[in-house]
Amino acid sequence: MNDLRDKREDCPGRSVGSIFWKEFVKGLVISNPVFILTLGLCPILAVTTSIDNALGMGAGVIFVLLCSNIIISTLRNATPSLVRIPVFIVVIATFVTILSLIFEAYIPALHQSLGIYLSLIVVNCIILGRAEVFASKNPVLYSIADALGIGLGYTIALFIISFLRETLGTGGLNVFGFQLFSLPVLSEHPLTFFISSPGAFLVIGLLMALFRWIGVVKCE
C-alpha cells in the first residue's frame, strides 16, 4: 500500500509534464485500482457481466473521479480538515447524481442495466480514496492526471474482466447491440458459472495474480 502515500515533495527537479505523465501512468498497471490497490471490488462483481455495462461504469467512474478530484483539489487549501470527509462526500454525491440524471435521460438502456450500481459510485472507495489520498494534497493539474490514470486503470480492469466473463459465460460478445463474435460450441453450451458472482471472483483472482506479477517484474 506504499504507493497510496503521496511522494510529490521528493521530486522537485522534475518537470510538470513528467510528473503529470507519471501520475497518469501509475494508475494503469503499477497501482491499478482493482488488481493492485483492490479498491471498488463490489460493483465489479455486479457490472462485469457484460462489456456494455463495464464500459458504461468505467466512463461513469472516470467522469465522477475527474470532476471530484478537480473540485476537491481546487478547494484543498480552504477546506477545514474537521469537515473534509463530509465535503468530499457531498462533492462526490453531487457528481454521481448528475451522472445518474444524464444517463437516465440520454442513455436509458445503460441506466437500466447498471441499476443501483450507478448510484453506488458514491460509496466506491476509489473515488473517496483518491480524494483523501491525492486530490486533497496535490495541485489541480496532477489531480487531473491521477483521476484520468486511476479511472482508466479501473475501466481497463472492468473491460478485461467483463470480456472474459461475457465470452465464457454466454459464448459470444455483444457490444452496444452489435454481435462481435459468437463461438461455435460455447454459444450452445455457455459456461454460465462465469456470469455468476463466484465466476467473477475466480476471474478477478487470476487477473490479480497476473497484474501483481507484472508489477513485481516492473519494479525490479
Binding site: 459465460g169 454466454t170 456470469i195 455468476s196
Partner: peptide
C-alpha cells in the same frame, strides 16, 4: 419494460 435480472439467465 425494465428489469435488473442476471444477463444470460
Amino acid at each position: 419494460l425494465s428489469h435488473t435480472e442476471t444477463p444470460g439467465l
